[in-house]
């Protein structure tokens, strides 16, 4: 199966960002925390921060198109 045939070839910017944030957050949680509950909390807040900051920056950039 060619890689280009998958749905990933047609993702939107938001979908790509969510996917990126999800995997990076989970990996960072495992890298930085040793307890299970700490990992879940870190992954969750890291994911939320990724999305929230990206949307915030996008809205700021919206007012400065060029």
């Amino acid at each position: 199966m060619a890689l280009a045939d998958t749905w990933l070839a047609y993702v939107t910017h938001l979908q790509a960002m969510v996917l990126f944030a999800l995997f990076i957050s989970v990996a960072f949680a495992l890298l930085t925390k040793s307890k299970g509950s700490d990992r879940i909390r870190y992954a969750f807040w890291s994911f939320v921060a990724f999305i929230a900051i990206a949307i915030l920056v996008a809205w700021i950039a919206f007012f400065f198109p060029r």
Binding site: L3, L8, F23
Partner: peptide, 22 residues
């Protein structure tokens, strides 16, 4: 084991996904 599985999955999905996105 858990870290190994999660890290492999994360890197594999991101690398192969990146190639799928051209």
């Amino acid at each position: 084991w858990v870290r190994a599985l999660v890290f492999f999955t994360s890197v594999a999905v991101m690398a192969l996904g990146g190639m799928a996105m051209k």
